[in-house]
Amino acid sequence: MHTYATPYNIVRNLQPELPTYCFRPERVTAAARWFVEKFPAQSFYAVKVNPALHVLDALWEAGIRSFDAASEKEVQLIRGRFPDARIAFLHPVKPRHAIERAYFNYGVRIYVTDSVAELNKILEATNFAQDLTILVRIAVSNEGSALPLSGKFGASTAEAAEILRLARRHADEVGVSFHVGSQAMKPSAWAQAMADASRVIIEAGVTVDIVDVGGGFPAIYADKTPPEMDDYVAMVMRSFENMFVLENAELWCEPGRALVAESESLLVRVDLAKGREIYVNDGSYGALYDAVHEGWKFPMRAISGDGRKLGRMVEYTVYGPTCDSADMLPGKVWLPAGLTEGDYVEIGNIGAYGRSMSTQFNGFGESEVAEVQDSPWPSLYVSAVGAEVISIGSMATN
């Protein structure tokens, strides 16, 4: 991977034909070290959020040693890359053969369930192993999250209590888990969820070794600035102290977006300009899935392809590259006037889910990656971030 001072240098030197991820490893380092040093919980990175090897390596280098896998492929990826990693298979529904291979071939001992049927499947696929850790996922409110995740998974209080009692008979360790929803903007969401989890434990009448507070920890976007991360930790720790658990119970979490959203931006090329309409080489079937389908607002800046000074900000309609007329950003996007073929737009803080949601529809989906050293986008972990998010015309190079 080549390193450049800024994305402007990439444009000047390469004029890239493919969408190019601009990787900022120091952002991964800052986020990972924050979780390792300031959050007294075992952090399991959610691999699905960004499985790029350079991102995984940066997390490992910064101290992340545990990983949340949602599929057998993710289990294989992490075990092959980091033989000593701790892996938890945390998809609530897993194929029987995947559980068997995860246990016997890849040494995975941690599994989640939200039903008796799935628990029985885990027990049978592992030949009723004596060294299992079973987490029971309970349903909790997703109020205050940008993307609720409560519709598909999570056991009710009565169901979860029954699963806990059954798991306690067979597993070496048992715990409770939940997910407050993606991009949770209210720390109080964890207080309510942990109170609900405590009631489940009391209802079950069993000892619990682990409380997994899941993911949902937020990132900064153009229209979403969450509270300070310290507020989330304080709320979780206060709530943990009030839970009905063993004094030596472990606290776990599953950060994904919060660890890697700031790690990458995406440099896209303007392939056609028709007045206030521009067509770029990535879109709703690529890394901009969340921007189109979930309406997320990412910070953006424009870079002229020929070094000219760009004009005042105006509203554009932005289309992606496919033949599908729905491949367009919702609403209008503010960018400099006069954009034309060969100019570029950088879309910031797209390190979470951008890469992993990209498809090959219409033969698109290929991309490149380069490391950059600038810090134009807001950060939850780095104070005094440098540049303002504006359009870039002619700039001095370093």
Rank of each mutant, 00 (worst) to 15 (best):
L259K: 03
A98M: 00
V211C: 03
D306W: 03
D212Y: 01
S367L: 11
L259C: 08
D209C: 04
K94E: 06
E37F: 03
E100N: 13
V108F: 08
E368Q: 13
M243V: 02
M243L: 00
S383M: 09
E173P: 00
M237C: 10
V75C: 01
F364N: 07
G214P: 00
G144A: 10
M185K: 11
Y106P: 07
G107L: 08
L272D: 06
R169L: 10
N50F: 01
R137N: 11
L135E: 06
F39Q: 00
A184H: 00
S71P: 03
P299S: 13
Y232I: 06
D131L: 09
T133W: 04
V11I: 13
E368S: 14
V200N: 12
E241R: 07
I134L: 06
R169E: 15
F82W: 03
N9S: 14
Y45V: 07
W60Y: 11
L14P: 02
G154I: 02
E241H: 07
L56Q: 09
Q42W: 00
S358D: 04
V245C: 04
E368D: 13
Y344K: 10
K297F: 09
K121P: 00
A46P: 02
T359E: 13
Y111M: 05
R168F: 02
K274E: 15
D231E: 15
K38M: 12
R79F: 12
A125P: 00
A193F: 03
A46C: 09
V208K: 01
I350A: 10
P255K: 01
Y232E: 04
Q76L: 10
G320A: 12
A160C: 04
V47S: 02
A146W: 10
M357K: 15
S263A: 15
W296T: 06
G107W: 05
S145T: 12
P255R: 04
P226F: 08
N9L: 13
E203F: 01
V270A: 05
G393T: 07
A52L: 15
D114E: 01
M194H: 02
V136G: 06
A129K: 07
V208E: 03
F39W: 12
S71W: 09
K332Q: 12
V206N: 03
G256W: 06
L53F: 00
G154L: 05
F178N: 01
G181H: 11
T157R: 15
F82T: 03
Q130E: 12
K309W: 02
T6C: 12
A167P: 11
A171V: 05
A139E: 06
N13P: 00
R101C: 04
L310D: 10
R199G: 07
D271K: 11
S379F: 09
A291E: 14
N281I: 06
G107R: 08
A88I: 06
H2D: 15
G144H: 12
F128M: 05
T126N: 13
R165Q: 13
S284A: 15
L272P: 01
